[in-house]
Amino acid sequence: MNLSVGMRAAVVSVAIFVAFMLAWHVATQGSGPVAQMDPEYAKLLGLTATQGKSAMPGPLDVGMKLWEHLQQPFYDKGPNDKGVGIQLAYSIARVGLGYLLAVAFAIPIGFLIGMSPLMSRALDPFIQVLKPISPLAWMPLALYTIKDSHLSSIFVIFICSVWPMMINTAFGVAAVRKEWLNVARTLEVGPLRRAFTIILPAAAPTILTGMRISIGIAWLVIVAAEMLVGGTGIGYFVWNEWNNLSITNVITAILLIGLVGMLLDQVLARLTRLVTFPE
């Protein structure tokens, strides 16, 4: 075997995947008729009781459901029956809006904290207290003040993505190498040009790392927020399907949430690589 490490890793991944699918398939297999009974009574009891069929859907059920969803992602048959694509789009839009608001707020404040030791100390107690609050704890307050469930979930995304970005920006700005600042000083570079040509590029990798952490947290929180708020979104979809007792749909949604989360993370990872400079 002289395959590259990447190839071998792929082989192992596929093996794990197949093993998991097989185990899943076997575990959810029905055990055949369990008892002889009147067909009418059997109908009332359902397949689980009569045929020994697992209540948990197997991989084939989920696969078929996923295929079904992917063929028709954007149908809209009223408030309780929308395509999974529409639900995901709602969630992504909320995350996008809340996240962009957070970027616009956190990065300038982070700059301020990073550049001014005074502001750093003055704002520190607020950040220390606000940061560990679960974003969902804000939800009632948001609903009460904003009076709009859609905007409230955007606010919750905003409040949970602000902190990692703000803290990372402050750290990145404060850690800009003294010698680069001295270069700017000896060249008599003005404060604005210094901020954009020295501090921003020097701190960009750290800022982007904070943004990457934030998008991950935002995507975690949106599912919970939408379960709470309801109406639209992938979180609502999960909860709605739970109420419908459609475990197949719940598992499908879980899978899609994971895939979208991975994509969002990859986008930020790509951006981070763009601004990272070798030393």
């Binding site: 190498r177 010698e179 680069w180 001295n182 270069v183 000083r185 000896t186 060249l187 008599e188 570079v189 040509t197 020295i198 590029p201 020097a202 601004v275 400079f277 070798p278 030393e279």
Partner: peptide, 30 residues
């Protein structure tokens, strides 16, 4: 500091995200 007094730093202090040309042009543009 004044731009009339140029400093050559012990650690060269180049801006790593700029090219050679970019580093020199940064000074010229200042």
């Amino acid at each position: 500091p004044s731009i009339d007094r140029a400093v050559i730093f012990q650690s060269h202090a180049l801006l790593p995200w700029r090219s050679v040309m970019g580093n020199v042009v940064y000074a010229v543009a200042s």
